[in-house]
Every structure is written in structure tokens, then in C-alpha cells.
Design a protein around this nucleic acid. Sequence first.
DNA 1: CTGAAAGCGCTTACAG
DNA 2: CTGAAAGCGCTTACAG
Lengths: 335, 335
Amino acid sequence: MTIRDVAKFADVSITTVSHVINNTRFVSEDLKERVMQAMNELGYKPNMLARGLRSGRTRTIGLVVPDMANLFFAEISRAIEDIVFNKGYSLIICNSDDNPEKQKAYFGVLLAKQVEGIIFISTGSSQDYIEQLENSGIPIVLADREVPTQLADVVLIDNEYGGYLATNHLISLGHKRIACIAGPSELTPSADRVNGYRRALCEADLPVYPEYIVNGDFHFKLGEAAMLHLLDLNPRPDAVFVSNDMMAFGCIRAIHSRNLVLPNDISIVGFDDILLAKASSPALTTIAQPTQKMAEKITELLFLRLESHPSNTKRKRVILKPELVIRDSTMARSS
Amino acid sequence: MTIRDVAKFADVSITTVSHVINNTRFVSEDLKERVMQAMNELGYKPNMLARGLRSGRTRTIGLVVPDMANLFFAEISRAIEDIVFNKGYSLIICNSDDNPEKQKAYFGVLLAKQVEGIIFISTGSSQDYIEQLENSGIPIVLADREVPTQLADVVLIDNEYGGYLATNHLISLGHKRIACIAGPSELTPSADRVNGYRRALCEADLPVYPEYIVNGDFHFKLGEAAMLHLLDLNPRPDAVFVSNDMMAFGCIRAIHSRNLVLPNDISIVGFDDILLAKASSPALTTIAQPTQKMAEKITELLFLRLESHPSNTKRKRVILKPELVIRDSTMARSS
DNA sequence: CTGAAAGCGCTTACAG
DNA sequence: CTGAAAGCGCTTACAG
């Protein structure tokens, strides 16, 4: 079933069929009618490969994320997919699995598939491989995680400010021994969140105890382990800023397993505000990522670049502010 | 940067270049070497559109899911992506958003993009549109939700058995007033789970109270609302089988908001065993979907069909057994 | 207002 | 052991 069959059936040239499909030059009502009918009759679907090959436009964009089973990435992917679909594009989703090798392989695949643009949430340690993309000349938008390149637009949130907000909230509740569970140290978001935590403590003239800062990996399991570790300290912290919600869930579990009561015995604030943050018990106080807004900005920048000349080389950088969402995992210190 | 450039650079025919790329006929070491080097030097990447157009093989498969921000779908998509990637394929992910129109539009896109196969988790009410796929002759694997067609392999779990397991567990704990929060009534999984619930009650000679069966939609919010409704009944149930984990989280929230204690005042068991099920407080007793195994079966059936002749028309049907995972949201009735 | 034809970048018989 | 050439299904100058 090709354009040739349709042309034959409608007794017109394939040129004309192409033009009615794409609405790209005037075609008389009569012919248009015949073509339409032929397409219906034959159940014709244009072959996007042929179209893409010829026109250079594939209407496909690639999305590279570290792990789409991580709710934060799942939600932002979802939001991006929705916008992109409404623009008539489709998404090839690539799980890098936080593995630079897999990520590199996917870059190759995306380029080979001639995607028109790439949205890229980096693994921790992939600085090495992005040149491949830079040389391709294809528009790239980096999201969530910084990568050292001048050749892409960037959409980030102000993680330092988020960490500051979270910690300040705990301070304002009267907590003094405030710990922090950090994310993987290679990621800029982790480091920035911890920096915000430090700044808040400093501004409040509270000491920063090194043993109160423990490393995690943004996953549930290490969140639980880190919290168990903190609870074993003497004195144990009376509040903790956990740098993402997944780990915060691990913390809740750890706290319960020690028969402590949240938030009475210890307050925690998370980061991300994934959908399930409000479903934990108690509901998680957390720093909300502006997921929807991020998705909008990311796609806006990408489509701008798709439409503009490559000569327009000024790179854009958007930094969105996160917000504190107070729920029930924090309360004033019982003195 | 095309195969032609490589051929010129290496001073061989494009035929030869093609054969070294695809390893598809003998090429002398000498030429092979020169071609390899040329490809490296020029940073050549084969154009998959051209390859796909010519060979009819796109190495792409489509995955249609109702909502990838739903953790169950996110996890199964993740598992599928991983397997498919290792086979050298890529995935186009399509969120139908539980919207038959969008789903239909995506079918068109996938066919136009010449995917080699489709994995399809249906929206509730899309029976109408699958013919489009059937006629295409492209291999389809249906997963999770039944759809009336003879023209696809199917991978399901035994939802009736899952509902039975869950309810039996509650019965064995001594509960008598056991309620059920169902999923959307159009979906076969929902109905089957409720059927299992009924069967367990019947076999135990326990009455089935119609007011104890309330409808949900598999989302958090309605789970919460449904549980609030159940808690207002007099007498209120002492246990409830919630037909997915998302809604079970809503239930936990509702229970806490009424200052009741889980599981002391009421036991609940969920369905799915999403990653966060173990992170709720208390950890959720639930019926585990064999997510990894489903992904394996789904891809196994699909690749079998990709490799076999279309004449091999015998359709396969795989039904996997879910398992009860006992955690802390259920306990024996305090008589 | 419409059509014939070149060509996008590959693969793959066919030929030697 | 290697290459010249046809053709996959489209789009798009070019021509009239």
C-alpha cells in the first residue's frame, strides 16, 4: 500500500497525492476528493521512513533518562510525552540505567534514527560522551542535571535554594541537630542540595556536623540504610533533610522499624514531591519540583531550536524555583 | 556523511561498505580494515531510515501503555525496554492516557513508522480500534488487559486468583467484614480481581455485602475517597482488599486521617507490589505482579513472532500466577 | 492547476 | 572476492 497505489486508484499523479496528504499546494476539489477516497478505500498510511529520508524531518525526538521506573523521571517523561505528542511528534525513550556505556549506545541509536532533537537527563559520569552529540549539530536540551557543554540549552531547578528551603523549614521548627542524606556525589543536584543545607545552617549559626551528612544514591534502599545509620548515632539527629523522596520513603521505613514515631521523634523533609509523597504515612513534607513547568520549558526550548536557524547560537539557561510543601512529616521540636 | 563518502574515502564500492557494516558477506581483511578506518575517521553513522526503508527492518517496536507515570506500567515498561535494548531494538513509548482517541492516533503513528511489532496494554474501552492493527499484519502482544481479538499473543496474570489469594489471606486472619475497592469496571483485571474476592468469601461461607464493594479507578485519590466512604459505614469493615497499590496508598492516607491505626483497626491488602509498596508505613501486604517475568514473556512471544513466518498463526496465551507478599498492613483480628 | 523525474541513503539480487 | 545498478516510498524542484 504505497502512494503509487493511491495515485493509480485515484487516477492522478503521485505528486498530487503527496500534496493533498501534506496540504502543500493547491489541489482542485475534484482531485482532492478522489485522492481522499482512494486513501480511505485502500487504508493507506504514509511511510514515515520514506518521508523522513526524503525530507529530513522525522518528527521524532529522543528522550534519554537514567531510570524511567524512578517516579520523578516517569512523571517528567510523561509530561514531556504529552506536550510532544500534541505537537505531532513522537518520543523514543531511552533508559540509560545510569550507565554511561548504555547512554553512549543510545546516543548512537538516536542519531542513526535521525531524531530531530534530544532531551537529555544525564547519568552521573557521562561528560566524556556528549561530544558525539555536540558534533551532530542536532538540538539538545539538558534537563535536571548539569553537563559541561556550551552546546545545549539547559533547564534546571535551583537545587541549592531547595536544600536551603528544606533546612530552613526544619530550623524554623526549632530543630538543632539537623542531619542530611545526600544523593550520589557525582551529580550536581545532590551537591547543590547539600550546599543549600549548609548555607541554612550557617546563616542560623548552627554547627555542621560531618557525621550528620551521609551519602545515599537516590534509591529507597540506601535511604533506609542511611537513616538507620543516623539513628544509631549518639546523639541522634532530631531532624533530617533527605535529598529525594525515594530515599525519604526508605527513611520512614527505617524510623518505623526502630519503633520511633514520625514526626514526633524526628522530622524529615524530602525532595521532588513525587505523586506518592502525599500518600506516605505521614504525608511527606518535601520540596516540590515544578515537574509540569519543567516539561513545558524543556519542550519550549527544544521546539524553538527546531524552528530557528542553527546559526542562532545563543544558548538558553532556565532555572526554576522549587517550592516547600508542608505536610505531616515535620513538626516543631518538643523541647 | 553517507555510505558513499565512506566508500570514496576507503576507495571501495558502497556494496563493500554495506557488507562490512552488516557483516553480511566475506570481505578481505585489507578492505575491511580500510572501511573501518574510513568510518572512524569520518564519524560515520548509518542512516536507519534508509536502511529501514530498503530492508523493511526498522529494529523498532512500539509500546502502548495507559500511563507511564503509573508505577506498575513504569516498571514493566522499564523491564521491557531493557530486554528489547539488549536485542538491538529500540522502543517508541506511547501513552494512551486511557484515551481511546489518543491510542488510535498512536496506532497510526506506529504503523507509519514501520515498527516491527507492538506491545499493547489497552485502555479500558478501545475494542473498537484494534482492527486497524489486526489488518496491518504486524505482530502484536497484548499484555495485562484482555482485548477481544484472535490476532495477538496475550500475556496476562491470573487476576481472579490474585483476588482470591488476597481475600483468603484476610479470611485466614479471622476477618469477617471484608470489603473490596474495585478498579474501573471496564477493565477485565478489575472485574477478575473482584470475582476472586467473591469466590474466597463464598468458599468461606462469608456473606458478600453489596455496600462493601465500592468502585475506584486505580488512582490514589479515588482510593482515598473509597476508603473514607467505607469507614463511614456502620458497621465498618475490619479488612479490605484494595485492587491496586496506588489506591491502597490512598486508603492508608484515609485511615490515618480518621485517626485509626493500621493494621490494628483495619487490615488492607493491595495488588501489584510496586516498588514503593514496601516503603509505605506500614509496609503494604499485597499481591505481587510478576513484573520481570511478564516483561520476559511478552518480549519472548514478540520476538518469536518476529522471527517466525506469519503463516504460523497459532496464537499463544500465557497466564502468570501472582503471589501474596505478606508485610505489615494486615494482622489477625483482635477479637 | 497538475505531472514527470530526480534523488534521499541505504540493501541486495545479479554478474563476473 | 568485489562492484554496478535497481529500487524501497516518499518529497520537491522544474516544467508546462
